Simulated assay, not measured.
Amino acid sequence: MDVTAIEPGGRKGLPPHTGPGAEREDAFADLRETVDAYYSRRLARFGPTPLGVDWSCVPTQEMRFVQLLKLCDFSTSRKLVLNDLGCGYGALLAYLGWRHPGVALDYLGVDLSAAMIAQAKRLWRGQAGIAFATGSECPRVADYSVASGIFNVALDAPRERWEAYVGSVLSHLRATSRIGFAVNFVAAEPSTGSLKPGLYRTCPDRWISYCESELGAGRVELVTAYGMREFTLLVSV
């Protein structure tokens, strides 16, 4: 895939957003800009490292990849067509190269932060089957989509508005995934005093119900108990 084939549009690197989704694009522009600025600052401070995308270390970052990629079928020789929304500097590619070195990959990484995408392009320059674009949505349909951590940093957004935003992103993932998509969330717990402020915490039932009733998902698998205060949803469409 040649990333230059993705023409610039109304949002950096994406086609102009028109039609029924245009209202949603306008409605959440300020939230996306705030998140964009937050992660761009993290990258400037910590570089292309887990801390640069607000994770604590490589092992926990990769543990999240393990859960998200349970969605994908690696048992065949068929090319893996994958969208990575909120890709950061492309850390998932390093994990795929280590854990699934033989996979034929057609990968598109998308991120709000232009600085993240510039870093990703430098790190993965010249790699076949890999492309990146700056934006809030994936400009193509893939077999699978994953999104790691993109719902966590709500900052000062009111909860109701942040959840409307989360719902809109899940709807987009549903529309751009042929087989399924996977996402993760920080889990709501009785005692969360040690977690930093500005994180969105939630219960699985809230979003399992949304995927089933609002998005018409064929199956939603809940993945928990992997050593962190969070959960992953594997959604078959």
Results as ranks from 00 to 15, higher is better:
E137R: 14
R174M: 06
T202H: 05
A187I: 04
L155H: 00
A187K: 00
P190S: 13
P190D: 15
T176L: 01
Y144M: 07
A114S: 14
L199D: 05
G193N: 04
R125P: 03
Q119H: 08
W162L: 14
D156E: 14
A133P: 04
V153H: 15
S213T: 13
L170Y: 03
S209E: 14
A115N: 08
A147K: 13
S213Q: 15
L108T: 14
Q127C: 15
W124C: 09
G149Q: 08
A157F: 14
M116I: 01
L195N: 08
S209A: 15
I150Y: 02
S148A: 14
L173G: 01
S209C: 08
S213N: 14
G193K: 05
W162Q: 04
P158Y: 11
S171I: 02
K121N: 09
G198A: 06
R206P: 05
A131L: 03
P139W: 00
P197E: 10
G193C: 02
A164P: 06
D143V: 02
A164C: 09
G167S: 15
E163K: 03
Y210E: 05
V153S: 07
V169F: 10
I117S: 01
T134C: 15
A142M: 00
Y200N: 08
R174L: 02
V186W: 00
L173N: 02
A182Q: 06
A142G: 10
V141W: 03
E163R: 08
Q119K: 07
G135C: 07
D205C: 00
V169D: 01
A188H: 12
Q127Y: 09
G198R: 14
S168Y: 04
